[in-house]
Amino acid sequence: MSKPRHFSGRLAALSSAAILAVYAVGYTVTEDAAQSAESGPAPTPTPRASADPTTSPTSTARGTSPAQTPTVTVQRATSTATPGASSGSYRDGTYVGFGTGRHGSIEATVTVEGGKITAVQISQCLTRYPCSRIGALPGQVVSRQSAQVDYVSGATDSSRSFIQAVTNALASAN
């Protein structure tokens, strides 16, 4: 990538997310390594009742299989969300940020062109649950020009990690 990449913390985050990822698979239950890799937690989709029909993911997140269309309940974040709020102009470039929660880490890659956020990707999904659950959030960052996106019901920890990852990425763009 020719755009600036900010690596600090990437290796540290990968190394701690790796521990969680292995524990999430549950080796203590199933001893056979090959088997337990396949018995990882499955996504549990909930009926769609979106509070914001205008949001649609504008970027494909790696780790999100197209077949797993996100069917999640989106709730408005209670306090901090200021929908549509733009944090002003950012420096052009591609920025990478990490967010870490109880269930692992998320790396977000944010592209800024002409001072605006034009693309957001979940470039690494190192969480216990598939990032397809928060597949709508990258699109919200673009439409709101802000990291203040909705929390996804049933995936609040991943949502929080994602918001933190985007916030960290944008911190380099200010």
Binding site: R10, L11, L14, A21, V22, V25, Y27, A37
Partner: peptide, 20 residues
């Protein structure tokens, strides 16, 4: 080749370190 988390996790880290 399908591999377990015990292989893909340290490998992903090693590849990131190689990249860096």
């Amino acid at each position: 080749v399908h591999v377990s988390a015990l292989l893909i996790e340290p490998l992903a880290f090693a590849l990131a370190l190689a990249e860096e």
